[in-house]
Design a protein around this nucleic acid. Structure first.
Length: 171
DNA sequence: GCCAACGTTGGC
DNA sequence: GCCAACGTTGGC
């Protein structure tokens, strides 16, 4: 038996006018394939590093307010992003084939909305979050890593205790 | 709507 | 392989 991989943490950006945390909660099974990523760095993380059970902060960008709206978890590992094969999708990539897909998605499942959005201004004002990737100047990636310390600090700032998951249980 | 940052594209 | 032009992101 291999030792459990340490749980990873991520921040997923979304424009709530396109897909919000509430939309995730309203989705069938409270889950969705996180498709549409078209950046190679992020693709590599999705394909190679993001794992089932990892914690996800859902971040609303270009929003009022901008900030972290809810918690989610990775519920299925990387698989080809179906929108790359769909000519009607804005994510269509004619250079991609089913034999050799270029783009991947993971599935995310809603865990809990934050009591209120933890705003970008609040994140910037928190000294313990100075290293948070999403706050770094010029970063534009739609998925960013979060350290365990940052994850805990954000949950504290948000005033939430992470829901305990029954060990071995599957919903 | 502006614009800084930066990834991607394509001419050479 | 260089690098200017272009497109996108996202805060403000």
């Amino acid at each position: 038996m291999s030792p459990a991989r340490p749980r990873g943490f991520w921040l997923f950006k979304t424009e709530p006018s396109v897909f919000s945390y509430a939309d995730l909660e309203a989705a069938p099974g409270r889950r969705t394939g996180w498709n549409g990523v078209r950046n190679y760095q992020v693709r590599n993380w999705l394909r190679d590093t993001v794992a089932v059970g990892d914690g996800v902060l859902l971040y609303h960008s270009s929003a009022e307010p901008t900030g972290i709206a809810g918690l989610a978890r990775v519920s299925a590992a990387a698989r080809p992003d179906p929108t790359q094969f769909d000519p009607r999708s804005p994510g269509y990539d004619p250079a991609s084939t089913r034999a050799e897909p270029r783009w991947y998605e993971v599935e995310v499942e809603a865990v809990a909305a934050l009591p209120q959005v933890l705003t970008l201004a609040e994140l910037r004002a928190a000294p313990e979050l100075a290293t948070l990737a999403v706050l770094q100047h010029g970063q534009r990636l739609s998925i960013l890593p979060v350290t365990p310390a940052e994850w805990l600090a954000i949950l504290q700032r948000a005033g939430v205790r992470e829901p305990r998951r029954k060990s071995g249980a599957r919903p």
